[in-house]
Simulated scan of single mutants.
Amino acid sequence: MTARLHAHQYGKAETRVVRILRDAPRHELRDLNVSTALRGDFAAAYLDGDQSAVLPTDTQRNTAFAYAKEHGVSSPEAFATLLARHFVDDVGPVTGARVDVEEYAWNRVLVDGVEHDHTWVRSGQEVRTASVTAGADGTTVVAGLRDLTVLKSTGSEFRGFLTDGYTTLAEASDRVLATSLVAQWRYAGTDLDFDGTYARVREVLLTTFAAEHSLALQQTLWQMGEAVLDAVPEVVEIRFAAPNKHHFLADLSPFGLENPGEVFFAADRPYGLIEAVVVRDGAPDAGDAWTRSVGAP
């Protein structure tokens, strides 16, 4: 049998970096989970055990901590860009780098109705994400979020679908629509107000989900993607994965009770998984920036 090493990369996964800015009475907090992956000609390490071109994963971890101190964390996208460009530009054997960052949100604790300067409480399950791919041909920034759980109690239907001998689902003209959204969007450049742009995209996603009447979750994803591209010119592509968090009417008839759409059973599995990609006309291809694309939560 003849075998060959087809592809390879290596890195340090899930380095937890918490950066606290203490240079004023009101402290600032950024809580990150950083993963790095380096690409280049490292075949000798795999085939012969020759580590002479390998920058240890331990060094990659240390670099993340040092950069958090030296450069701060203005946003996960900016931090990931700094790290990725450093590995490509400053480490000789490295020809490409990918840096994935998750940011965990914290809200300030209120004391007598006033935000406390240095105490926070973890905010929900939603996680902000950033992926930066750097190479000789440039840098691509992909931002996003996951576990953004949203629900609307009306304004959604699902009718007119294909049926066969195995179909039992009844048509619904007024149903609960809920999902735990995963979204990633690709920016047109790297010199952006990432925090401000992230907030705008998130706001558009939520307001569109709330305001637009939904004929199906598929249509809702298209409406959200189109709205983001219309409202945020910095975004050239957005990808979604949306599990349909089904809510079924609970049968209260055995108890002599009617249930006009008021009490539901929330089923966690199995679930429909709806995915979509919405691209601005004329947008350049993203290359391998989507290697770790959105998928099921």
Rank of each mutant, 00 (worst) to 15 (best):
G165L: 14
Y166R: 14
T167L: 13
T168G: 11
T168F: 14
L169I: 11
L169F: 11
A170C: 10
A170W: 10
A170M: 10
A170I: 09
E171H: 00
E171I: 02
E171K: 01
A172Q: 09
S173F: 00
S173K: 03
D174M: 00
D174Y: 00
R175I: 05
R175L: 02
R175M: 03
V176N: 05
T179K: 08
S180F: 15
V182H: 15
V182S: 14
V182Q: 13
A183D: 05
Q184M: 15
Q184E: 15
W185A: 07
Y187T: 11
Y187W: 14
A188I: 09
G189M: 02
G189H: 00
T190E: 02
T190V: 03
T190P: 01
D191A: 03
D193I: 02
D193H: 05
D193W: 03
D193G: 06
D195W: 05
D195N: 09
G196Q: 04
G196E: 03
T197A: 09
Y198S: 10
Y198P: 06
A199Y: 08
R200K: 15
R200I: 13
V201S: 03
V201Q: 03
V201G: 02
R202S: 14
R202F: 13
E203C: 12
E203I: 10
E203S: 15
V204H: 05
V204L: 04
V204G: 05
L205W: 03
L205Q: 04
L206I: 09
T207G: 03
T207I: 10
T207N: 10
T207V: 11
T208F: 04
T208H: 00
F209H: 00
F209M: 04
F209L: 05
A211L: 01
A211E: 06
E212H: 08
H213M: 04
S214V: 03
S214F: 00
S214H: 01
L215W: 12
A216M: 09
A216N: 08
A216I: 09
L217M: 13
L217W: 07
Q218T: 14
Q218W: 15
Q218P: 12
Q218A: 14
Q219N: 15
Q219I: 12
T220V: 07
T220A: 11
T220C: 10
L221N: 00
W222S: 13
W222M: 12
Q223W: 09
Q223D: 11
M224R: 06
M224V: 07
G225P: 01
G225D: 00
G225N: 04
E226V: 12
E226A: 14
A227R: 00
V228N: 05
V228Q: 01
D230V: 12
D230I: 11
A231Q: 13
A231I: 12
V232C: 08
V232R: 05
P233M: 06
